[in-house]
Nucleic acid binder design. Structure first.
Lengths: 148, 148
DNA sequence: CCAGAAAATGCAAGTCATTTGCATTTTCTT
DNA sequence: AAGAAAATGCAAATGACTTGCATTTTCTGG
């Protein structure tokens, strides 16, 4: 692990939400070319340090988001999925993947071997729903507590 | 519905697999600018004539794929998900969405309103698995029957 | 059926995330 | 520490997709 790789992995590990390459560029505290950010993300994903998925939103367009993978004591990966609010553009953690059985079912049904999957939900978060209720359509509020 | 829109919707409706903007350009039989293809796909999706999801594969990179939505007699949409083979790059229909309940659970748990979702599986299809078994790693075969 | 307005389309250029080639620097191996 | 291998920076390219604007088609009221 080089310095750059350690640094980006640290950023991912300490983030509570998935980050795009651009998010990482903003958060990095050491000099690093943006090409290196992309290459590092590829490296981390190939080596199972992180997961990624593509998401399209009105504010950021289509981008790939990365999140650190937590390995369990038995060596398996704790793979998460995410909800993305179409109003405030925050991510909400949906916790550990709950479609393993569904996938196992498809594998059996179709005689395929599933190697990867991508699931993401979009909609309106509790906070934005509340804002709507209380006030018709005001301006969107900022992030819930700080930056995600 | 203009001529262009009807034509693209026809292409989507008669395809058994999701198509990218480029796939559609290849299949169209009337003159149409590629910008129009994109705008038409936006129109069709906004009006619930089709669904889309982004997918990344080694052969085509990251692209958005579109498939016609079938409306049931009760007016609801018959939303499907897809498996994509990382070797032959064919799609396999996973049938009607089976995660509605899971999503309803998340909505309740997190007090969010889910407006959309994207799920896709990647892996090796039955045919490619078989080719592997029978012959070590030969060249990949062509499409199953014709063009998908 | 026709005029005028509204919407759709074509064309050219632009945007933007991401990738690539190649030279230089850093890291690893012996 | 030397040499090879891998990583990084820089500049330019790629490729999906979007935008602005002029022209054409479609729709609506008369």
């Amino acid at each position: 692990m080089t310095r750059a790789r350690k640094h980006i992995l640290d950023i991912l590990t300490s983030s509570e939400v998935p980050l795009s390459a651009q998010d990482i560029e903003q958060r990095k505290t050491i000099e690093m070319n943006s090409v290196t950010v992309y290459r590092t993300l590829h490296y981390l994903e190939a080596h199972e340090y992180c997961d990624s998925f593509p998401l399209t939103c009105s504010e950021h367009g289509t981008e790939r988001y990365y999140s650190a993978v937590h390995h369990r004591t038995d060596g398996t990966c704790d793979h998460h999925h995410w909800f993305h609010c179409i109003e405030c553009h925050q991510f909400i953690d949906l916790g550990t993947c709950r479609i393993d059985e569904l996938i196992a079912g498809y594998e059996k049904e179709l005689s395929v071997s599933v190697v990867g999957h991508s699931l993401s939900l979009t909609g309106v978060c509790a906070r934005c729903l509340q804002t709507r209720d209380h006030s018709g359509n005001r301006e969107h509020q900022g992030p819930p507590q700080a930056e995600g």
